[in-house]
Simulated scan of single mutants.
Amino acid sequence: MWRDTEVSRRLQLAAPIIQGPFGSGLSSVALTAAVSEAGGLGSFGVHHLDGAAIGQTAAAIRARTAKPFALNLWLPHPSEQHELEADEFDAALAPFRPYFAELGLEPPPPAAAPWPSYEEQLEAVLQARPAVFSFVYGVPSAEALEQCRRLGILTLGTATTVAEAQALEAAGVDMLVASGCEAGGHRVAFLRPPEDGLIGGLALIPQVVDAVRIPVIAAGGIADGRGIAAALCLGAQGVQIGTAFLACRESGASELHRQALFTPQAADTALTRAFSGRLARGLRNRLLTELATHQARLPGYPVQGQFAAALKPAALAQGRDDLLALWCGQAAALLEQRDAGALWHSLLAQTDRLLGR
């Protein structure tokens, strides 16, 4: 029976389906709890939250469900940019100035610390003791992994190549996500530049399954039962689904973002550094296309993400999805459901028809 795998048994799930974690406010307590209550693993991306907010988020999820859930962090990465001098900041801001003017906004001042410290975030996750600590952009320290084992927290890393999967296994990580380049959001490579490892799921999943002994969870390009069935037939013990859950009303995505996922535009995605400074997949819109012409002048992460985020409130208020970062995977054209419960039942029914119960 496809629902009974090592992943579903270890996480005590009704089916081995994990909701992908979303950063920068796109995760929501409502969606995380809804997926967990249904029998999957709900996930919440806490990369943008400080320690106190992480604790509050975990408490809010537990107020809605007693089922397992995951908290997800970004690990520190060499690509993170140091604080810019005033003249460097002004030069970096230049490509964005027309958009701020168009929206009637003053450009943002330099931010000394755009994100909370990782050490504070990690301590908060450990104190919250979710069923799963998931992470991207690397491997946590041996000490952090040992603390998770001592607290009974399962660890879930993400790999974009076979070498990254082997590094996660060697460190003692419990399970891993093999993320094909079809996936929406950031390419979370950590051993080589992400452009060097753009491997599709059909090729990546069986190679990773053959290379490691820990359970492999497939991600990227999975939005319906056909994707689940294919991933399991390739040897995965579960799937992680992002865009299809992001499109649900329970997610933290804006109405403009969710609507865009159900338009013909959703079939046109691109990998870009325009939205955050790190390589990521999103819908091709005006912001993505025009900033691509300024690649050499763009500031990189996290300053570039700060500029894009500063555009968001006014762009939403004015209905301007052309100036929003619209994260989206390549399977968006398959989306049909706008409710997490309906999506869950559809995924189960479709996969049951293909693989049987």
Rank of each mutant, 00 (worst) to 15 (best):
L326M: 14
Q304S: 08
E255Q: 14
Q295M: 04
L49H: 09
Y99S: 09
P107E: 01
S117D: 13
A314K: 15
R10N: 08
D321Q: 13
A70S: 15
G235I: 11
T272L: 03
Q318T: 02
P16K: 04
P98N: 12
A142W: 00
L287F: 10
L291Y: 02
E85C: 11
A14E: 14
R64M: 02
L271I: 15
D90Y: 03
A163E: 14
R320A: 03
S27H: 10
G23E: 14
E106D: 13
I153A: 07
D4G: 01
D321K: 07
R297G: 03
R278D: 06
L202H: 11
D90G: 00
R320Q: 03
I18D: 05
D322A: 07
T65A: 01
G172Y: 08
P140I: 06
A244F: 09
V29S: 05
A165V: 07
H77T: 03
S117I: 02
L311C: 06
L291P: 05
L84T: 04
D321E: 14
Q12E: 15
A63L: 06
H82T: 14
E88L: 08
N72Y: 05
R320G: 02
W115G: 00
A94K: 14
P16R: 05
P194D: 10
L168M: 10
L168F: 05
Q237D: 12
S43N: 09
D196L: 12
A112R: 11
P21G: 06
A211H: 06
L176W: 12
T289K: 14
F307V: 08
D224K: 05
V136T: 15
A315I: 02
